[in-house]
Write a protein that binds this DNA or RNA. Structure first.
Length: 506
RNA sequence: GCGGGACUAACUCAGUGGUAGAGUGCAACCUUGCCAAGGUUGAAGUCGCGGGUUCAACCCCCGUGUCCCGCUCCA
């Protein structure tokens, strides 16, 4: 099913079954903010846990980090995120540089200019006209966007004194100021206590590069992984949770020796694509797409997107960028700290002696956890024509989520609500919960409805307690994807489910 | 940011300028019951929000919020 209506069905199901709710719904909702309900929070946590397992626990060369959401404002000055708050910014359509219009090289309006395609040496030479009286400081091009003030980041202030007090005081003592001068002065006042919610988790990993490397004695190549909430004032929000202002990221910065980046980029592209495909019912709806040279940010020497075929078409799921030494250099420059790595084994090509100091290059697989959640819901959503008890056509809606990602690992269902069956059921539930497996006990309505309800919730296994259970201590295990049933001893139920989860059995 | 559409019960939707409807779901009980079973009963909506027109507005007008679809934009 690829029609746009599948999105409506997902949104409806997400609400009905407690996956995703509109934020602040009773107050009319808040633009592009979503809350994850009882099942949604489980799914999201499972996604992040699987990512962490693949990136950190299953290998020796990557370690974790959990940095503060609010960082020193200079972090964002160095990264370039802060520039847009007070200054009109312009995007170069040729090399993708974003720059301050007032700091750009001036040329007389109407002058003909020539520049290299993509801002890269050896690129095709293009010609254009500097219509606005300045050109791109990076490539010299004249193909520029309008001047705009971007407020990509959410700004707040730190400290007990409300910034408005400072502003009021300033205005009262500077009544002569107006227009741009006033704006600039007030911006200066605000900035004294201004802090920003991180627009990405990545920067903390660059900023803490040395601490992580030294404290754990990490040897290049190695990576730092982090998951967490990020915030962006997106110009456009769209497609349910696909692009929202507050979202969860799963990012890893992999530091490697200059010259090896192409190889590592290839490696990470393969790893990351395979990770998604491992959990997907439709691996053919996932692909890698290399960025065109004119798409690349000027600090990247290559970049791939992991894309998914959403109902609205192929779109991004994860970006895997080769960021060169740009970030470490920027932070070294702004902080005055030397952010480099010394390899005592490596011979220095200049002296021939062992010992080489260099600034590592970085490969960055940056994934969206909330985006992954949407992709998995879309991938898992199935409608099947199944005859009902009366032999009439009925539709079965089933979320074929990978068992390890499914919110409930199993549902325990007494066939009837009497004859001691509920008691047996509760005992089984207790065993699962003690084993750390999240399961649901459900005795409402007929057994068939309960199966279908859990199909919609993506519960991979249903354990049904029936009359026979009392005689031979067995229950039936019913599989979500094909509805087949088997009998297993209660004694082994936890182990059976655990083994199936381990293997990903459906 | 621009244009178009939508908003009525938890979900999917009817509806008329004059007392708010259906199906599903939900809750309770009954029927010894393995794939949305049958029966009985019940709860649930100030019709997104705020103004205006009118004797009377869910319906007409204005504003606003949210979502969707295009475009635009996009670390």
């Amino acid at each position: 099913m690829a029609e746009p209506e599948v999105m409506q069905k997902i949104v409806s199901l997400a609400k009905r079954r407690g996956f995703v709710f509109q934020s602040s719904e009773i107050y009319g909702g808040l633009r592009s903010a979503y809350d994850y309900g009882p099942l949604g929070v489980e799914l999201k946590r499972n996604i992040v846990a699987e990512w962490w397992r693949a990136m950190v626990y299953e290998r020796e060369d990557i370690v974790g980090l959990d940095a503060a959401i609010i960082m020193h404002p200079k972090v964002w000055e160095a990264s370039g995120h802060l520039a847009g708050f007070s200054d009109p910014l312009v995007d170069c359509r040729n090399c993708k540089e974003r720059f301050r219009a007032d700091k750009a090289p001036k040329v007389a309006a109407g002058t003909e200019v020539s520049y290299q395609e993509g801002g890269k040496k050896g690129g095709k030479t293009l010609k254009g006209v500097a219509e606005r009286g300045y050109v791109c400081p990076n490539c010299g091009g004249g193909d520029l966007s309008d001047e705009r003030r971007f407020n990509l980041m959410f700004r707040s202030s730190i400290g007990p004194v409300d910034t408005i007090e400072e502003i009021a005081k300033y205005v009262e003592t500077h009544r002569d100021l107006e227009g741009g001068a006033l704006r600039e002065a007030l911006d200066g006042v605000i900035r004294q206590s201004a802090v920003y919610l991180r627009p990405e988790t990545a920067q903390a990993m660059f900023v803490q590069f040395l601490n992580v490397q030294e404290s754990l004695g990490m040897k290049v190549p190695f990576g730092i992984a982090q998951t967490g909430r990020s915030f962006r004032n997106e110009i456009t929000v769209e497609h349910f949770v696909f692009r929202s202002c507050e979202f969860d990221q799963m990012e890893m910065e992999f530091f490697c020796e200059p010259g090896s980046q192409a190889e590592w980029l290839k490696y990470w592209c393969e790893q990351r694509l395979a990770w998604y495909q491992r959990f997907a019912n439709h691996p053919e709806r996932l692909r890698l797409r290399q960025h065109h040279p004119d798409e690349l940010a000027h600090y990247a020497d290559d970049c791939y997107d992991v894309e998914y075929e959403y109902p609205w078409g192929w779109d991004e799921l994860e970006g895997i960028a080769s960021r060169t030494d740009y970030d470490l250099n920027k932070h070294a420059e702004h902080s005055g700290k030397k952010l480099s790595y010394f390899d005592p084994q490596k011979p220095n090509p200049e002296t021939g002696k062992p010992g080489l100091r260099y600034v590592p290059y970085v490969i960055e697989p940056a994934a969206g956890a909330t985006r992954t959640l949407l992709m998995l819901l879309l991938d898992a959503y199935h409608e099947e024509a199944v005859p009902d008890a009366k032999g009439e056509d009925a539709t079965r809606v089933v979320l074929k989520l990978h068992p390890r990602l499914a919110p409930y690992k199993a549902a325990v269902l007494p066939l009837v609500k009497k004859d001691g069956l509920p008691e047996i059921g509760h005992d089984i539930v207790k065993k699962f919960l003690q084993a750390g497996l999240f399961v649901s006990y459900d005795e409402q309505h007929a057994i068939g409805r309960r199966y279908r309800r859990h199909d919609e919730a993506g519960t991979p296994y249903c354990l049904t307690v029936d009359g026979q259970t009392k005689q031979d201590q067995t229950v039936t295990i019913r599989y979500r994807d094909d509805m087949r049933q088997e009998r297993i001893p209660i004694e082994r139920a936890v182990d059976v489910v655990r083994e199936k989860l381990q293997r990903g059995d459906r």
